[in-house]
Design a protein around this nucleic acid. Structure first.
Length: 426
DNA sequence: CTTCCACAGGAAAAGCCGGGGT
DNA sequence: ACCCCGGCTTTTCCTGTGGAAG
């Protein structure tokens, strides 16, 4: 504990909070058994399994949509409901497997983990996930499937985009009930249904066309939430998260609107609401107001710039640094050739590859998209032609903050500055 | 209305990198 | 250990663009 004589100027942490009642409620993984504003989607989803309750072979389903719109939770709810609905039907039983493929990036690993999931179900020993010949892993998998006591098995693979182009397992699973498939599972023993869940919209197109035709016939698309839907979700959580009457009336609609505009993810909205509440708490305010929401949105946007810059390629960072320096010298806005000249000297100092103006052009385009630079078209007709003038699109300090942490650029820049300072002194 | 400037940005070739198979 | 392939980035080459000047 800190000695008392050191705490004079330091405040105290107290468990009381005038704003938040339970801020955990605003985490997006809170209460993962409930999902709002998705009834229609979930019913559509559940309906995809209607063959199962009639004892027929299940369809293969492909579920896609961005993160945080209820795909994973929805899948679990639907599969649970399916089991529930089947439980009092004679001669039909369902077992479901939900496998998270986040860290499994080959078909082999997916297959091995499926074998283990199925084995654990009956309490048998799991197999090692490495070391088997690829073929025997599949043999084991389909052996397990044949031996399942239930009539149906639904295999849900979450985040399947991770397995990349190695889509063998999808192909084999997707058509293992077909008599002419190499790994035939007799539907009289077990009927196999496959559900693929992904947030990568392009994944579908990257799949082998044979897999596409077996897996992608039936699709469920989870779209982002709109402002109204977000409002419902927010209102629901706010009741538990905040003390009574802490939020002014316009807070939730405004958060919903901002979040819908930015992404449409529940997570974005909850984050924003949390940040707004936090601002209010830190200021000892009695209420969370529209003002707090606006400032929270600002803060998040600024944070976004910092991370954007931080995630740039080395070249992108050098260009950003170049622009900041140009800005400090009052040389902005300026056109590409000037920026390129400065970039060239910077890149040489840092001792990295120097790319061509065309690439810098591309980088500047990227920087424009994420708000680091702004452009203005200038046209001087016959005398000067048409070109862009580039300027900083974000606060200089935020950009520098984003550049920090990149040792190469930071150090080289630092060395450079020391040198200049010394020569000034001399 | 036509011309013409000088860069923007599309298209395709070239280069590079990592993973998987042999 | 080696090579080949696919995906991604960079380079090269070239056409498109829109207002000012004549």
């Amino acid at each position: 504990m800190i000695a008392p004589n050191m705490t004079e100027g330091l405040g105290h942490l107290t468990p009381e909070d005038d704003i938040f009642c339970d801020e955990d409620v605003l985490r997006d993984d809170y209460d993962p058994d409930r999902i709002l504003e998705r009834d229609e989607k979930l019913n559509e989803y559940l309906n995809m399994f209607r063959e199962v309750v009639r004892g027929k072979r299940p369809r293969n389903i492909f579920v896609y949509g961005p993160t945080g719109v209820g795909k994973t939770v929805g899948t679990r709810l639907v599969l649970d409901r399916l089991q529930e609905d089947v439980s009092d039907i004679q001669n039909i039983s369902v077992t479901t497997v939900h496998l998270e493929c986040k860290d499994l990036n080959t078909s082999y690993q997916v297959a091995a983990n499926l074998v283990n999931k199925l084995r654990n179900r009956t309490g048998r020993q799991s197999i090692s996930t490495t070391g088997h010949p690829e073929g025997s892993i599949y043999d084991m998998l389909f052996e397990e499937l044949r031996n399942i006591p239930q009539t149906h098995v639904i295999i849900a693979l979450d985040e399947i985009d991770n397995i990349g182009t190695s889509d063998n397992v999808l192909y084999k699973l997707g058509r293992c009930n077909n008599r002419n498939s190499a790994e035939y599972v007799d539907p009289d023993e077990t009927k196999v249904g496959l559900v693929g869940v992904t947030n990568d919209g392009t994944f579908r197109d990257r799949l082998d066309s044979r897999v596409q035709s077996t897996l992608c016939d039936h699709e469920i698309h989870f779209p982002p939430y709109d402002a109204t839907e977000l409002r419902t979700i927010l209102a629901d959580r706010a009741v538990d998260a905040f003390h009574d009457d802490v939020c002014t009336e316009d807070v939730i609609p405004l958060v919903g609107a901002f979040a819908a505009q930015r992404s449409g993810y529940a997570r974005t909205a909850l984050d924003l609401l949390y940040t707004a509440g936090n601002l209010a708490t830190n200021e000892d305010a009695e209420q969370v107001t529209e003002e707090h929401v606006r400032r929270a949105e600002d803060k998040i946007q600024q944070g976004a710039i910092v991370t954007e810059v931080n995630q740039l390629s080395t070249q992108g960072k050098i260009v950003t640094l170049t622009l900041v320096r140009l800005h400090e010298e009052g040389e902005l806005p300026s056109k590409l050739d000037k920026i390129y000249a400065w970039y060239e000297t910077n890149a040489n100092k840092i001792d990295t590859d120097v790319v061509t103006p065309r690439t810098i052009n591309n980088i500047l385009n990227d920087l424009m998209l994420n708000g680091v630079v702004t452009t203005k078209e200038v046209n001087h007709g016959v005398k000067g032609g048409r070109f862009y003038k580039y300027d900083l699109g974000a606060n200089r300090d935020l950009l520098l903050e984003g550049l920090e942490g990149n040792s190469r650029i930071a150090e080289a820049d630092h060395r450079d500055r020391l040198k200049t300072n010394r020569s000034c002194v001399d």
